[in-house]
Structures are given as structure tokens and as C-alpha cells.
């Protein structure tokens, strides 16, 4: 009846957002006086997987069938469902992502479980199981009571403040039954910038808008991002104009991010862009227009020319490293 946490792997290590999900799941397990079990699908070393213990997991189920190496929400949902049934879990936790939502949805339908996506806080478990989630693209929250026997929670980044301990989880191999229907899609091609830091995982994001004036002017922004170890993003007009690739588009109809630090360069701050960044802990806005609406949503602001300010910030970061 342990709490089961589905984690995503990236090159054999547990993704940062999934580490948060483990920590969240372990906290819920404490509340329910049970233990936390992790399900990891794909290739990873025993050492990498046992590190789940640092975030509070007691056990890791590892499904390492080669057929599961490529991210596949149909198969992963099938594997997760079988793990939930084996463990008798009543609460299932995973990090919010395209894959997380898809796996949550399909396994919830198999398990006749309710699925709550976008959870922003630990649940309350006395007098019903109540959980808070983000709605209206981060502009509000809803607290809902979850009544079904099995509950699937999809947790947003920064829902909990992670504290590591020195525990190790015990790794067990898990061999689910795979069906032909789990492999209904043929993968033709994968285009992935493997060296790039992913926006949803990044702690710091430096993002550019139309104020950057053209794709050829991105160097100072990228330099600052590199100095900070940050990912780069952009506003919708910038990706619409093909100045930057679509997967960098942050906003209402793009990627929603929740970094610790978001630095917006030459972005005016349309409400649709703000909807994609309102989960950020700290927002810095650099814009030469003092009336830019983004300043109202910012923690720190600089009214100035991005091409003057960005190189100076990069120098300041490098000088004090």
C-alpha cells in the first residue's frame, strides 16, 4: 500500500523534477504511515537508482526491458498500472510534464482512479484527502477533495522544498507484461538538442523577446545564460518569427516554466507570456520601456538597453564566480 512515484530518466539519471516528485511522494507516505516506492523505466545504473533514497524512497522498481528504452506513454502507463497493482498503492505521484500527464491519464483510466494534475502543495490527509492545484494557467488555485480509492497526483515544479538525506533505496528488477497495443506508434525520427538544458528542468532561464531585434543579436543573451548555467527561452512573437526554435517558446500556448530565477530581456510582458512564467520564484525584467507591463510582475527591474546591460551582467557574474 506504499505510495508509488513514477520517475523520468535522462541519460540514466533521475530527472530533477522527478527527484522532487520522490520527495513529495515520501512526504505523503509519512503522512499515511507507509513507505515510498519508486518506479523507474528505462536504462539506469543501480547506483543512480538507489540515489532515490536520498529523497526518501525505500525501494525502487526498475523496469529495464530494452523495448522500454524510448519514451512511450502507452507502455509506461501499462507498466505503472501493473506496479500499482503489485504494490497495492493508493497514492501515485509523478512530476508534471507531457509524459507525466499522459502516463497519469492512461493509468488513472485503467485503475478507475481520479487524476489531479498541477498539484502545488502537499495534501491534507486528516478529514478527507485534500490537495491544492494551479488553475487558470497559474492565475488561481483550487483545493479539491479526492474521493476515489486510488489517487493519481501530477505535481508541479517547486511544490515542495527538497531536502536530501543520506539514505539509499533498495533496487528490485520489475518485469511487467508488455502488450502489442503498448507499441501502437512507430517512431520515425527523434530531433533533440541533447546538449541543451531543458526549460522545464532549468533552475535559471534567460529569455528574449522582440526587444532583441533579430536572431543575429542573441549572443549576449546566450553568453549570460552560459555564465549562469541557465537555459534559454523566448516569447511567442520571437518563435513565430522563427528567430528561435518553437520548443523555446514560453507562455500560455507554449511551455510553462517554474525556475528559481527568470530573466526577461526585451519582453514587454503580455498576459499570455506571464501565464507561462508565473510559477517562477524570482523574476528580473530588463527593458528599455519603463512602461512595459512586465515590471509589474517582476521582483527586480532595470530600465535600459539589453545590448548594454546583458554584457555587463555577464562580466559581473564571471568576475564573482
Amino acid at each position: 500500500m506504499s505510495v508509488l512515484i513514477f520517475v523520468e530518466l535522462d541519460n540514466g539519471t533521475i530527472k530533477k523534477t522527478s527527484q522532487e516528485a520522490i520527495f513529495y511522494g515520501a512526504k505523503v507516505a509519512d503522512m499515511l504511515q507507509t513507505s515510498a516506492t519508486v518506479l523507474a523505466i528505462g536504462q539506469a545504473s543501480e547506483e543512480a537508482l538507489s540515489s532515490a533514497g536520498k529523497f526518501g524512497a525505500a525501494k525502487v522498481l526498475h523496469a529495464a526491458d530494452d523495448k522500454l528504452n524510448h519514451e512511450n506513454s502507452l507502455a509506461y502507463a501499462d507498466v505503472l498500472t501493473q506496479a500499482v497493482q503489485q504494490e497495492g498503492s493508493k497514492v501515485v505521484v509523478m512530476a508534471k510534464s507531457g509524459l507525466g500527464d499522459a502516463v497519469a491519464a492512461r493509468s488513472a483510466a485503467k485503475l478507475k482512479a481520479s487524476v489531479v494534475s498541477g498539484v502545488t502543495d502537499l495534501p491534507e490527509v486528516t478529514g478527507g484527502f485534500k490537495v491544492k492545484r494551479g488553475i487558470y494557467t497559474g492565475k488561481a488555485f483550487a483545493t479539491v477533495e479526492v474521493k476515489s480509492d486510488i489517487k493519481v497526483l501530477v505535481v508541479k515544479k517547486n511544490a515542495v522544498e527538497v531536502a536530501e538525506n543520506d539514505g539509499n533505496a533498495q533496487v528490485e528488477s520489475f518485469s511487467p507484461t508488455l502488450r502489442d497495443s503498448d507499441f501502437a506508434a512507430t517512431v520515425k525520427e527523434v530531433q533533440k538538442a541533447s546538449s541543451e538544458l531543458s526549460l522545464t528542468e532549468a533552475d535559471i532561464i534567460v529569455s528574449g523577446g522582440r526587444g532583441m531585434k533579430g536572431p543575429e543579436n542573441w549572443d549576449p543573451l546566450v553568453d549570460l545564460a552560459n555564465a549562469l548555467g541557465a537555459a534559454t527561452g523566448c516569447s511567442k512573437p520571437v518563435s513565430d518569427l522563427d528567430w528561435r526554435p518553437h520548443h523555446e517558446h514560453i507562455g500560455q500556448t507554449g511551455i510553462k516554466v517554474a525556475p528559481n530565477l527568470y530573466i526577461a530581456c526585451g519582453i514587454s510582458g503580455a498576459i499570455q507570456h506571464l501565464a507561462g512564467v508565473n510559477g517562477s520564484k524570482c523574476i528580473v525584467v530588463i527593458n528599455k520601456d519603463p512602461e512595459a507591463p512586465f515590471f509589474k510582475a517582476a521582483d527586480y527591474g532595470i530600465v535600459g538597453d539589453v545590448f548594454d546591460v546583458l554584457p555587463r551582467l555577464t562580466k559581473a557574474v564571471e568576475a564573482t564566480k
Partner: peptide, 24 residues
């Protein structure tokens, strides 16, 4: 499966701290 308890709004954002450009 679920029932709504209540809605809430985020805490209002504090003032934006402006840094003069010459001290960026």
C-alpha cells in the same frame, strides 16, 4: 471522484525593486 473545496488567488506580488541602469 473529486469535489471542489474552494478556490484561491495567489498572494499579491511585492513591489518591483528598480535598479538604476548605471548600477546594473
Amino acid at each position: 471522484m473529486t469535489s471542489l473545496e474552494s478556490y484561491s488567488l495567489p498572494a499579491p506580488k511585492g513591489e518591483c525593486k528598480m535598479i538604476p541602469v548605471e548600477e546594473a
